[in-house]
Amino acid sequence: MNTKMIIEKIGFALLVLCILITLFFLGSILYFLSIRGFPALSWEFLTSFPRSGMTKGGIAPAIVGTFYLTVGAMMVSLPLGLACAVYLCEYSPKGVWVNLIRLSINNLAGVPSVVFGLFGMSVFVKFFDFGISILAGSLTLGILALPGIISAVQEALIAVPYSFREASYALGGTQWTTIRKVVLPAAMPGILTGVILSIGRIAGETAPILFTAATFYSRFYPKSLFSETMALPYHIYALMTEGTHPREQTVIAYGAALVLLLLVLFISALAIYLRQKQRSIHG
């Protein structure tokens, strides 16, 4: 064996090492959260309110709050993102404005989440006077999710062969009927995957709801769009940094972190599964 091949063996070994380290970290996160979080889980933990100054009881209102916030955010970002992607892929006349829109989407995607929080606080909480509420939080999260949804939908639309569109036009379809009856249905599986992935991301976001929606403790489920709410990711943060019984709170935080992790993993596994199924259909 010559030096060239020895160098190759060493180089490849280093790359294998990289992937092993990466997977090791993933493994240790999953391991510790499962081992230490699992004992806290129970039906009661999922369905009851916190009790005795956060040292006992469950996380039900946080789960419910996260559900409301995520659904709310999707109601904002899904229609907007879908329409925006359709415009950019199907209608967009090339030009300065479209380039500017693309640029703003790319940059919106890079804005730190805490800055979204500042934006949501000054616009929705203060300016529109929604207060710290599910509404303000959902709007903030919705805008945060927008660039992700747009690029997922765009990707799905681009994957639809141009010949489908031509076929529809040749049969006398207008642009809108072509989009509605041919392009969107063909792109639907891809869109769905992208949207599900965004749901997973939104459910775990914390910084944007810090000053727009979240509260540490509430004795009731949120009553309306204008109520503030507990939320699972914020609950984990708060248990670790606030309150007076760190030891007991950490136990609950392990449980809450495991629940959030499982929730998000389930959602992304669903998306990955859908995508692989789709790929096997399309070859």
Partner: peptide, 11 residues
């Protein structure tokens, strides 16, 4: 990539 940042923080 999908693990929420608060979970990383907690870990």
């Amino acid at each position: 990539a999908g693990i929420p940042s608060v979970v990383y923080g907690f870990f």
